[in-house]
Amino acid sequence: MRASFVSSEVGAGLRRNLTMTFAVVITVAVSLALFGVSLLVRAQVTTMQDFWYDKVEVSIFLCARGSDAPSCASGAVTAAQRDQIRADLESLRPLVEEVYYESKTEAFERFREQFANSPIVENVTEEALPESFRVKLADPTQYDVVASAFAGRPGIEQVNDQRKVLDQFFRLLNGLQAIALLIAIVMLVVTVLLIVNTMRVAAFSRRRETGIMRLVGASNFYIQLPFLLEAAVAAALGAGLAIISLVAVKSFVIDGVLAPSFQFTAFVGWDAVLAIAPILLLTGIALASLAAFFTLRKYLRV
């Protein structure tokens, strides 16, 4: 194997077919960039889930005077009921990690803080707000256990899972990710077709050389290697562009725009970008090489 000979063949091949090479590089770049973005969104969902599931809690609102839930028919919650609920919650350990009681006064304080600039505060009295237990679960997905144990019990108006609200948001993000992934897959298919065609044209335009190579007894591997390397080099260039655009998304869109405007939540770090980059590179090179390999097997047979 003569490296200098093979590399000069690869360079000549890429130059000879410059427009096709350019097309391959661009489609690989676009499809892999989309693929990378979809992976980034997935990483973002994971990051946010880690961040938020740690903070979410199940709220058990207790009956206040005038609650119209059926379980509140006997009026406001009694001290005995409240103690019983607390004891039952404690008995659910270790699923229940923390139980925190929020009195009417505390609820009112928090309400005033949250809506500090809103005129609604003036219309709300301490009495109108329910007291509640805030329960933190060791495993937030086990919400149903708590809900079935407490919902509908006398003295309990409502059991609320904050996670449900978050899950809607995550479903939205997952949907976006699925769409990005779908487009990426379609683009990757287009890329493969383009590479197949490019290889066909390349094999055809060099049929003189390859014909002579076959006659003088060059091995299949030696005949195909320049073509395979051409496809791989073009794909690597495309993957490089895709990685650059991913870095741009991270530093300009996420760090530059999203993170400053949405400070209440966490965003993906550079470690996610660092993990995705080699995936893009390998996907690009593997896809191009495989497409080229199977095309050449058809057009450069012995």
Partner: peptide
């Protein structure tokens, strides 16, 4: 060329 493609030095 005939020698290069069969890997002769």
């Amino acid at each position: 060329f005939a020698l290069e493609v069969i890997g002769k030095p």
